[in-house]
Design a protein around this nucleic acid. Structure first.
Lengths: 242, 242
DNA sequence: CCAATAGTGTCTATTAGACAATATAAG
DNA sequence: CTTATATTGTCTAATAGACACTATTGG
C-alpha cells in the first residue's frame, strides 16, 4: 500500500498514473456426481484476439468496478451466473499473478473455490462438468488454470482429512453412509465405518430429521446440516494410509 | 478470465479499455522478540493526497509491472527492502479487494505472511516492530490492514497447533526448550514438556549439531533446521485447553 | 429364511498429558 | 552440596482402527 511509484508532484488526486495489472476472479466449483468429484468448466470464446480460443477454463472474468462491491461478491456473481446457486460454500483459494500468465499483459486473478450439491441450480449453456480422475483432470486448461485447479483439489483433499467440508457437497437430507461415501470419493480411499460415525456425530454438525431412507435393506436415518454451521475442524486427521 | 466487458468490436489487441482496480501487495512480517510475537509496520507518508497520512500500515505497495515478475517476487522484494532478509518463510495469506478499502478507488491487495528470526537482517529506517499483546495489536492501522493482520495472527496460531512453522522464527541454532518457548508465546499457553519433545523429535524436522548451550545448569542440546525442509504437518493438534 | 446394508460393541495399539525421576552443569 | 534447568521414564486416559456382531428392511 505504500506507493512506490511516488513522484515529486502529488496533486490532490494522488499519483496513480502508472500501468495497472488486469484483475480477474476465477472460481473452482466442485460437486459430487456419480462416483466422482466433478469440476465446472466453461469454453473460451473462439473470437480472434481472445487468448486460448475454445480451450476449457475455470469460470471467471474481469472484476467489474461498477458492478462488484468486493472480491467475494464478484466470485458469488460468477458462480450464480454459471450454476444458479445463490449461497454455496465459498472460500478463497489464493491468488495467481504474473507478467506472463495472460498474453494480454500483467494480470492477477483471485481464485475461489465453491462446493455445491449435485442437484443444485441450473447450468449455464456454455458450462460443463468434468470428472476429476485419479486426483487430476485429464484435459489441459487455458491460462494457468490447471495449476489453480490442482491447488484447489489439494486444498479440498487436505481439508477433508480434518474438517466437515464434504457436508456442503450433500443434498439437503442425507444418511451417514451417504456422507461417508462422499468423504471416500474425495479422499480416494476407504474409511472405517464406526470411527467415521463416531467422529461425525460427536462434531455436532448434523441433526437427524424424522425420516428414514428406505431400501431393500435396513432403513438409514436421514440427517441435515445444522443451520448456520461453520465448517468443523477435527483435532485429528483421519489416519492417513501411512 | 472470461472477459465480461466484451464488446462487439474486438480488435487484434482485445477489448481491454475498461477501468482496472489498483493492485497492491502487502506483507505481514512476524518475528519473536523478548517474550512476544512482533509484527513489522511502516508509517504512511504525511504528504497531502496520500490516504491515511502518518498512520501505521503493513509494508507493501503497488505491483510494479516492470520490476515484478510475479506476486511472490513482489512480496519478497518488499520484505527484503524493509528487513534485508532474502529467503524467509513466505506464504500467501489471501487477498482483500473492494470498492471502498482505498479512498483512491477500487483496489485489491494480495497479502503474504512471513516469518523471520529475531536477529535476521537490518531494519529500514521507517519500519518498526510492534508487539502483539493478547493476540491483537493495540494500535489502529491504515486501510483494512487491521483485518489483514488479525487474519494473519489467526492463521499463524492455527497452523502452530499442527505444524512446524515456529521453526522458521528460530535462529540458526536453538535448543528444544527455546523452540517450546516460541510455541508457547505464539499459542499463549503452556505446553507439556515431554509430549512436546516427543512430537518435535519424531517429526524429523530438526537435527542436532555437535554443540551444547551451556549455562548455570545442565547444558542443552543445540539443533538446527534440516535443510530444504517443508513445514511438517502433525496428524493431531496440540490438545487445546478443552 | 436370505441378502443387503445400517448401526453397535469389543478389543487393541497409539499417543497425549500429568508428573515424577534422573542428569549435568555452575558456583 | 545446592540450585537450576535439561532430559527421560512411568502411568493413565482418550480414541482411532480393526473387526465382529446385531438390527431391520424387502423379497
Amino acid at each position: 500500500m505504500a506507493g512506490e511509484p511516488r513522484s515529486k508532484d502529488l496533486g490532490k488526486s494522488g499519483q496513480l498514473d502508472f500501468p495497472r495489472p488486469l484483475t480477474t476472479v476465477d472460481v473452482v466449483i466442485f460437486t459430487i456426481s456419480g462416483d466422482s468429484l466433478q469440476v465446472l468448466l466453461v469454453q473460451r470464446p473462439a473470437d480472434e484476439g481472445e487468448p486460448f480460443p475454445q480451450a476449457w477454463a475455470l469460470p471467471g472474468g474481469f472484476v467489474d468496478v461498477a458492478k462488484d462491491r468486493d472480491l467475494a461478491a464478484c466470485a458469488a456473481r460468477k458462480l450464480k451466473d454459471k450454476t444458479g446457486v445463490m449461497s454455496p460454500y465459498l472460500e478463497q483459494l489464493g491468488s495467481w499473478g504474473s507478467a506472463t500468465r495472460d498474453p494480454r499483459g500483467w494480470s492477477a486473478t483471485h481464485a475461489y473455490f465453491a462446493l455445491i450439491p449435485d442437484d443444485a441450480g441450473t447450468l449455464a449453456p456454455d458450462a460443463r462438468w468434468f470428472p476429476i480422475q485419479g486426483g487430476r483432470l485429464k484435459d489441459k486448461l487455458a491460462f494457468d488454470h490447471g495449476d489453480i485447479l490442482a491447488t484447489a483439489i489439494q486444498r479440498l483433499r487436505n481439508k477433508v482429512e480434518y474438517t466437515s467440508l464434504p457436508a456442503y457437497l450433500m443434498p439437503a437430507e442425507f444418511t451417514l453412509p451417504d456422507l461417508q461415501r462422499v468423504y471416500e470419493i474425495v479422499l480416494d480411499r476407504s474409511l472405517e465405518k464406526s470411527a467415521f460415525r463416531t467422529r461425525i456425530l460427536s462434531a455436532d454438525m448434523i441433526e437427524p430429521v424424522a425420516k428414514m431412507r428406505r431400501g431393500p435393506n435396513r432403513p438409514a436415518q436421514l440427517y441435515r446440516l445444522k443451520k448456520g454451521r461453520e465448517p468443523v475442524y477435527f483435532v485429528r486427521t483421519f489416519n492417513p494410509p501411512e
